[in-house]
């Protein structure tokens, strides 16, 4: 990847978080990448936090799937229907 430092078998934080990001978005990693990421996370609390928090952010951004099936009030729907009907008359 990018960067000027030497790469060893273990990815640095910058690369590890990138790999983690790919994995979070369901991108397949190579075996070597998966092992490298696992090892890195084993030793690095900051990247472990990053992964947890990044996953949480995805949840907030994407589907905050409502706990219960949520639908608009019947009264609201009625209001919408009336509104549409009135505009159609014009």
């Amino acid at each position: 990847m990018m960067g000027t430092h030497k790469h060893t078998w273990m990815p640095c934080c910058k690369d590890a978080t990138m790999l983690a990001e790919k994995q979070l978005q369901h991108q397949r990693l190579s075996l070597g990448q998966r092992i490298g990421l696992r090892l890195h996370l084993l030793f690095c609390i900051f990247c472990r936090r990053y992964v947890m928090q990044s996953r949480a952010i995805d949840k907030y951004l994407g589907n905050q799937t409502p706990q219960t099936e949520i639908t608009p009030d019947e009264s609201v729907k009625l209001q919408w229907e009336t509104m549409i009907a009135e505009r159609m008359k014009k």
Binding site: I70, K77, W80, I84
Partner: peptide
């Protein structure tokens, strides 16, 4: 056919909007 919109789509539109803005 706008007269059918509320019946057919209101629930799905609303559900999508709530999921994105988190505010009923």
């Amino acid at each position: 056919n706008p007269t059918r919109w509320v019946k057919l789509y209101a629930d799905d539109l609303f559900k999508f909007a709530v999921a994105k803005v988190a505010d009923n």
